[in-house]
Write a protein that binds this DNA or RNA. Sequence first.
DNA 1: TGTACATCAGTGAACGCGCGTTCACTGATGTAC
DNA 2: TGTACATCAGTGAACGCGCGTTCACTGATGTAC
Lengths: 193, 193
Amino acid sequence: MGRKSGRSAEDTRRVVLDAAAEVVRTHGVATSIDVIARRADISKGGVLYHFTSKDALLLALAAEMTEGFREEVYAEVDQPEGTPGRLTRAYVKASVVPVEGRVARERFALITQLLALPAVLELVTADAERWERELNEDGVPQATLVLVVAAADGFGGLPLWTTPVPESARLRLRADLLGMIHSAVERAVDAGG
Amino acid sequence: MGRKSGRSAEDTRRVVLDAAAEVVRTHGVATSIDVIARRADISKGGVLYHFTSKDALLLALAAEMTEGFREEVYAEVDQPEGTPGRLTRAYVKASVVPVEGRVARERFALITQLLALPAVLELVTADAERWERELNEDGVPQATLVLVVAAADGFGGLPLWTTPVPESARLRLRADLLGMIHSAVERAVDAGG
DNA sequence: TGTACATCAGTGAACGCGCGTTCACTGATGTAC
DNA sequence: TGTACATCAGTGAACGCGCGTTCACTGATGTAC
């Protein structure tokens, strides 16, 4: 039988990526293409028509995840360009998100699985280096930046295998971190000016 | 040929675990038993004499890693039992360690790979829940505890794929976190007494 | 201290199956006239 | 608007190989007397 009724190749690609995301996140990278295919309601060969190999599929998935997080951070930016701490604040806001909005968590869980592929580790490392450059140019004194980013990463990443922190504590952490950025930037401005 | 010259079964087990740790950390969980065996200078069958299956070997490795971290934390405890923040301080000290002492980093990298196995995820989750219980009973106000533990986890875990923070920043983070614990505990004591 | 036997710590060849990849084929969609 | 052809999106069977696991066998160590 030929092509699937009525949908475009793009659509199918999307369905495959979503199926792969869910299956790999919950059952690991060792999950076979066949399982992914069945979940996407397509044949194994169909999956490989859209992605040249299993690794290519998983790498595409990893790229989507890192890009997704980046977009969320940028979407949180709400200060004029040039404001010190502008990006760092957005980074905190995008990382310290409620657990119910599970997108962030699921993304992290998926990336963790995908790190088993050397190519993904490379991709993620490059992405992290880019974040480091961007954040270092954001005008937040180093001591505060290191603390705040570590806390944001720790909150966003490790809940993976931890019982989630209560919502009140999450809001408090968010406020504390934003407060730290605020006062560190003010102090720096006072000292510099 | 029979047993290896002069060493005990325990010795061989150790050699296999070390070989597996290195190979899996750098090449992922998909690495074959044969590769592990060659690195341990033993046959494939020999590896499976000590561990009933590949999964059993990897699970043993994961158990060693979580136990190793726990021991390091306990080794950092330097205050009398009952002192508020006693364990939290030790947790910070064991997490915010220099990058040169690569043990902690390698451990984390290895655990990340091993998480691909469902059984390991279970183990690590149980371990994390235990940490949560123990830290919650440590007498540090929640807001501070959440912030400090997130920062410690974030520093310890994520450098995995990040360019390491300079040593001066690390010392500063460590001091800041310990200072936060100190003043939060003092405030709590003042308010409570 | 020597000898006989049991057990232990491994070897290495073979098995078999699951999985990634290939490929010939097909029905649906797009395009030219 | 219909027709002929090309391309596109997907099928499903087959292949083949890598890898985990099994197993018969072996030489070294431990133990009883």
